[in-house]
Design a protein around this nucleic acid. Structure first.
Lengths: 220, 220
DNA sequence: GAAAGGCGCTCTGTATACATAGGTGCGATA
DNA sequence: TATCGCACCTATGTATACAGAGCGCCTTTC
């Protein structure tokens, strides 16, 4: 594995899991020293993370871990709803039914997984498989690229949400509706169900943000 | 100006104006030599152009100027319609009316500009001002970023189209409809008019592609 | 004559040294 | 005491040297 990939993955991971918090200032030399690499791969990692929007250049002082304010999260979902609804519409038209039938069967037993907190990881893994299947069925490189661009920010935002069992069970139902629409090839239903799911998802995150005493944004 | 910016702008310009054609293989050393720079800034330029999708890594052999096939153009517009329709919808809700009233007045006299081929540049400049005004009114960083991501590819695609006067005059009319909808704050009309405009635009480009004997794609 | 293996070239990947700019802090002067 | 200016320090920006890997061509052998 290339050193620049190591640096990228390491920094990205730390940003996504809030180890490196918004507002933290990073410099090339400091990170090169910490990660035991030279400045060159760090530089490349900074460039990639800046392109993704996780870092913002701070002229003369380095880069800063980007902000994730309430307003930013709203803007993020504003676009996410548009992109993923459209994606669901296209997937419903282009999918291989067998793949999504299998996923439907898995989602049928999902509520059982959510009874015990221990099995949550399995549920999250299932959702990831659904995402992967949709990516594969999408067949539109540009739309996929646009969705991928949002994912790191969504990962960061999701960390803010307190996923209680009630919300997760509801989410499982919403996913089921989407998967069934895709199986049926009902593109409009798939799009609408996705839109509804994401808006509820946003609401859940914003609820968590609003009831958290801790200030999330540290710089702007 | 930084050397890496120079390299980026130079290569980007050449790709967009088809001086560097799809399928052309570039290596760091070769370009460093040609542009009289060291490998470092070239490397950075390659990375940025790869992130934009104008270059594709060719493991062990350098990078290659990305393909722009008929299919790619269709996928490009598939996403563009979604993004720019949504943008028009939001702009109609968030715009400063004065700005777009002024633009409307300019578009009123646009057909006159298109009578002489010499004045086309003025018309193109007007369209650019409209885009800039919409970007500013949009107030959604993520949506704007997604649209910006498409622009270089659109610039390249547009080079393929043969814009005859008839098409340009029609386009001016379509733009006028969009601007008026924005002035009126009619978000649905703005979105629909944008969708129609872009679909006609795509048709025009595809017509040109289909009637061109020259093969556009050189690699895949 | 064809196929396989080895040698060599050229590519990227990384480290490091040097240049340069901008910002901060301290000191001097008004 | 406050403000202006200079110097130093630390940051990025750039060049370059070196290492490692992959591909192609050439040679040799069957």
């Amino acid at each position: 594995m290339r050193a620049s990939d190591q640096a990228f993955e390491a920094l990205r991971g730390e940003i996504l899991e809030w180890t490196l918090r918004p507002g933290t200032i990073l410099t090339e030399v400091e990170q090169a020293d910490r990660l035991k690499l030279s400045r060159t791969p760090i530089r490349e990692a900074f460039a990639r993370l800046t392109a993704e929007g996780l870092l913002v250049p701070l002229p003369g002082r380095g880069v800063v871990v980007s902000d994730l304010s309430r307003e930013t999260i709203i803007e993020l979902f504003e676009l996410r709803v548009v992109l993923e609804s459209e994606a669901a519409r296209l997937v419903a038209l282009r999918r291989d039914p067998a793949v999504f039938l299998a996923l439907r069967d898995e989602f049928l037993v999902a509520p059982a997984l959510l009874e015990h907190d221990d099995d949550r990881r399995e549920y999250y893994a299932l959702v990831e498989r659904l995402d992967a299947a949709m990516d594969a069925a999408l067949q539109s490189r540009f739309l996929l690229a646009a969705i991928r661009q949002l994912r790191p920010h969504l990962t960061r935002a999701r960390r803010l949400a307190r996923d209680d069992s009630a919300r997760l069970i509801a989410a499982a139902g919403e996913h089921m509706t989407i998967v069934e629409a895709i199986v049926d090839g009902d593109s409009e239903l798939a799009a609408n169900a996705t839109s509804i799911h994401l808006k509820k998802s946003l609401k859940n995150i914003l609820n968590a943000v609003d009831t958290t005493t801790e200030t999330v944004t540290t710089s702007r």
